[in-house]
Amino acid sequence: MISPHHIVHFDLDSFFVSVEILLDPSLKGKPVIVGGSAERGVVSTCSYEARKFGVHSAMPMKTAMRLCPQAIVIRGSGSEYSKYSRIVTEIIASKVPLFEKASIDEFYCDLTGMDKFFGVSQYTRELRESIIRETGLPISCGLASAKFIAKMATNEAKPNGFLEVPNGREKDFLWPMGIEKVNGVGKQGEQQLKNFGLYTLGDVARTSQEVMEKYFGKWGESLWRKSQGIGSTTIETDWEQKSMSHENTFHDNQTNADFLFSEIVRLTEKTAYDLRQDEKLTGCITIKIRYSDFETTSRQEAIDYSSLDDRLIAKAKDIFAKHYQKGRPVRLLGVRFSQLIPFTMQMDLFNNSQEKLNLYKAVDDIKDRFGSKLVKKAITVKQKPKDTK
Rank of each mutant, 00 (worst) to 15 (best):
Met1Leu: 08
Val8Ala: 12
His9Glu: 15
His9Asn: 10
Leu12Cys: 13
Asp13Pro: 08
Val19Ala: 03
Val19Asn: 02
Ser26Tyr: 09
Lys28Glu: 08
Lys28Trp: 04
Lys30Cys: 05
Val32Trp: 11
Ile33Leu: 02
Ile33Phe: 01
Gly36Ile: 06
Ser37Pro: 09
Ala38Met: 07
Gly41Cys: 06
Ser47Ile: 09
Tyr48Ile: 10
Val55Trp: 04
Pro60Met: 03
Met65Ile: 15
Pro69Ile: 07
Val73Asp: 00
Gly76Asp: 05
Glu80Gln: 15
Lys83Ser: 10
Lys83Asp: 13
Lys83His: 14
Ile104Leu: 14
Tyr108Gly: 08
Asp110Gln: 08
Leu111Ser: 03
Met114Gly: 05
Met114Gln: 03
Met114Pro: 03
Asp115Tyr: 04
Phe117Pro: 02
Ser121His: 09
Arg128Leu: 05
Arg128Tyr: 06
Gly142Arg: 09
Gly142Asp: 09
Ala144Phe: 05
Ser145Val: 15
Lys147Asn: 05
Ile149Asn: 00
Lys151Arg: 15
Ala153His: 03
Glu156Pro: 00
Lys158Asn: 05
Pro159Asn: 06
Glu164Leu: 10
Glu164His: 08
Val165Trp: 06
Val165Glu: 01
Pro166Trp: 05
Gly168Ile: 07
Arg169Pro: 00
Arg169Trp: 07
Phe173Glu: 01
Glu180Cys: 02
Val182Pro: 00
Lys194Val: 09
Asp203Cys: 11
Val204Trp: 03
Ala205Asn: 02
Ser222Asp: 13
Leu223Gly: 02
Leu223Glu: 06
Thr237Asp: 03
Glu240Asn: 07
Ser243Pro: 00
Asn253Cys: 12
Gln254Lys: 12
Leu260Trp: 00
Arg266Ile: 00
Thr268Phe: 04
Glu269Ser: 12
Gln277Pro: 00
Thr282Met: 07
Arg290Gly: 02
Arg290Glu: 09
Tyr291Val: 02
Ser292Tyr: 06
Asp293Lys: 10
Thr296Arg: 05
Gln300Tyr: 08
Ala302Met: 10
Asp309His: 03
Asp310Gly: 01
Arg311Pro: 01
Ala314Pro: 03
His323Trp: 08
Gln325Gly: 02
Gly327Leu: 12
Pro329Ser: 07
Arg331Asn: 07
Arg336Gly: 02
Ser338Asp: 13
Pro342Leu: 06
Phe343Lys: 02
Thr344Ser: 15
Met347Val: 03
Asp348Gln: 12
Phe350Gln: 06
Phe350His: 10
Asn351His: 08
Glu355Trp: 01
Lys356Gly: 00
Asn358Gln: 14
Lys361Gln: 12
Asp365Phe: 06
Asp365Arg: 13
Gly371Thr: 02
Val375Tyr: 00
Ala378Arg: 02
Ile379Ser: 11
Lys382Met: 15
Lys384Ile: 14
Pro385His: 11
Asp387Leu: 11
Thr388Ser: 13
